[in-house]
């Protein structure tokens, strides 16, 4: 019986993470989910948030955007718009992007632009949150 899960996180530009992990926590559309090996096959949507992967006793944190998750007994595949490891997040830049997006939302803009800006805002906010939480510990 397998004791590890093969986690793969891919974005349109690259494969961000690929490796064996003991556990994954991810933000599903119906709430946070913790996944261990031998999980029932499941497919769901991913919402912007934080993915935690436990690899050899060490936790790895990633900020992710919207996407989808596919879980089989020994695989977890995540496809998403954005995935950045906590260490690689530039907090100042994310914060700046967040402020810009907020400022843009306050103005009169078309619906489609508002949607795009809102998605950007969500992504930037998640990055800032993940970074802060990790820095605080």
């Amino acid at each position: 019986m397998a004791h590890t899960l093969k986690l793969e996180i891919v974005t349109p530009d690259s494969k961000v993470f690929s490796g064996d992990v003991e556990m994954v926590t991810l933000p599903g559309i119906e709430g946070e989910m913790g996944i261990y090996p031998q999980h029932v096959p499941l497919m769901t949507q991913l919402v912007p948030g934080e993915v935690v992967a436990r690899q050899a006793g060490r936790d790895l944190f990633l900020a992710v955007g919207e996407g989808f998750v596919e879980i089989t007994g020994d695989h977890v595949n995540i496809i998403t718009d954005m995935a950045i490891e906590a260490e690689n997040i530039d907090e100042a830049k994310a914060e700046e992007a967040r402020r810009r997006a907020e400022a843009r939302l306050a103005q009169q803009i078309s619906d489609e632009e508002a949607a795009a800006v809102r998605a950007m805002l969500a992504r930037a906010t998640v990055q800032v949150q993940v970074k802060r939480r990790r820095a605080g510990k």
Partner: peptide
């Protein structure tokens, strides 16, 4: 081989969300 997949919230909704992507 793996049998039935569970879908959250439902297959239709996940598919509906997947289409724009």
């Amino acid at each position: 081989s793996g049998g039935e997949f569970l879908f959250e919230p439902s297959a239709e909704q996940v598919l509906g969300a997947l289409l724009p992507h």
